[in-house]
Design a protein around this nucleic acid. Structure first.
Lengths: 236, 236
DNA sequence: GTCAACTTGAATTTCGAGATTTTATGAATT
DNA sequence: AATTCATAAAATCTCGAAATTCAAGTTGAC
């Protein structure tokens, strides 16, 4: 009986069942396995993730706090809906917040931070190269490295709150990107955009780095919107 | 059908026990009844709020999402700690976000929004007057009206995410203010500051309104910091 | 005396059945 | 045909006991 291990154990770093279930469900929402707007019935998910009802509710409640799940009293949980309006709002707000966080990060970042960034960029670069060869062979590692790179960029920002909000918006953005990617392969040189940001940072050119990041977010918005508007039934 | 009403029913709008407990605990944290850093033992709170363990955990998890409670795996929950550094961060980030939200709100606000704002200001003004006479007689109503006024100011901002973040920071700020108020009565003309913002908005002077709001937040930071630094053992 | 392993008590975490509420179905009335 | 109402089915919500984990104190070997 090789298939009987609970699925939630796929989260290796989890120190409790709640956290394991939380991680698994979050992954499935970001990856599009659980579709936007889909009803999340407790009895259904109990079997799928192999945990009790209360444990599941707690995991879902945690996801409500990240706006990946919505809950209506006495009516249960749903995967948070998506819309082009929402994605535009996310992109605009992310630009506003991330550029400020980046500015502060570049102002405060020391040598140790810069070394961390170089290492993180290198790791992402490797995966990007493999991804260019065969997009399917990379799996979730591309997402992981991408997250790490963007976090490393702003990590020297001293404001915990800005970083908190930035991470939230980044996660929301990731979901839209992966939803679009599931529809159509996207013709776009993301590596060049990442490199442009990275180079500007190493040159300590703050304004240029911010501008490159702004363009990066803007491009993402434009490209994904056209795919999402035509290829999916995503509401306006 | 029962005759004995649980304490959590003090939250009248609650449609479930989770929400009722959530509201009660949030109130107690904001009011300082539950002190910063205090351990939140499930068995203890079960009696106090008269709900089951799972229900309580769900309510606490919801508060973790608002950064009013912290949780460490296998080590339970605590009231989120406070520090002057955190309050400075909250104030700075709030200034950054709220001013942008206010700017957008003033740009998009129509006559209906303006009428709502006038009504809300009027209600707050009444409570402020009573508060000036006898601070103790007002209770939580002052907090409610204050929240409503500040929300009304930005409510025409079309960005759901900016509003979301603004509300979070506003709530954090409220906790620090009430913690300080519990120590010493604060000598400061808040009514004048509110009126300055309100008047600038009615004049449709966006820059002035933002500047008045900026000053409002700045004053709050300065006054509260001096009280909190001297009157409490709040860490730096 | 020091350190590791064991014991004990307390707190957290987890589960699943039962209570409550919503939703679906269909008969009865206008 | 549309609406209302009763009933049944399904889903959510709630609870408290049981399992698990942590923290502290104790014993025993070296």
């Amino acid at each position: 009986m090789e298939g009987t291990a609970p699925k939630v154990r796929a989260q290796p770093s989890a120190r409790s069942l709640v956290e394991a279930a939380y991680g698994s469900i979050r992954h499935d929402i970001l990856a599009g396995v659980l579709a936007p707007g889909e009803k999340l019935r407790v009895e259904m998910l109990k079997d799928r993730y192999a945990v009790g009802a209360s444990t599941l509710r707690e995991a879902l409640t945690r996801l409500v706090g990240e706006s990946l799940v919505t809950s209506e009293e006495q009516r249960g949980f749903r995967v948070a809906p998506v819309s082009l309006t929402d994605f535009r709002d996310i992109s605009a707000t992310r630009t506003f917040i991330e550029l400020e966080a980046l500015r502060q990060s570049l102002t405060h970042g020391d040598d140790i931070w810069e070394a961390q960034l170089v290492a993180t960029y290198h790791r992402m670069s490797k995966v990007e190269a493999r991804y260019a060869e065969d997009p399917d062979a990379v799996g979730d590692e591309y997402e992981l490295r991408n997250r790490e790179f963007h976090r490393a960029l702003v990590s020297a920002c001293p404001s915990r709150w800005l970083l908190n909000f930035q991470a939230t918006l980044m996660q929301q953005s990731e979901r839209y990107r992966r939803l679009a990617l599931a529809i159509a392969p996207i013709d776009r040189d993301v590596r060049a955009e990442h490199k442009a940001i990275f180079d500007a940072v190493l040159e300590h050119d703050i304004d240029k780095a911010c501008e490159m990041d702004r363009v990066h977010i803007e491009r993402t918005l434009e490209v994904l919107c056209s795919v999402l508007a035509s290829g999916t039934g995503m509401p306006k």
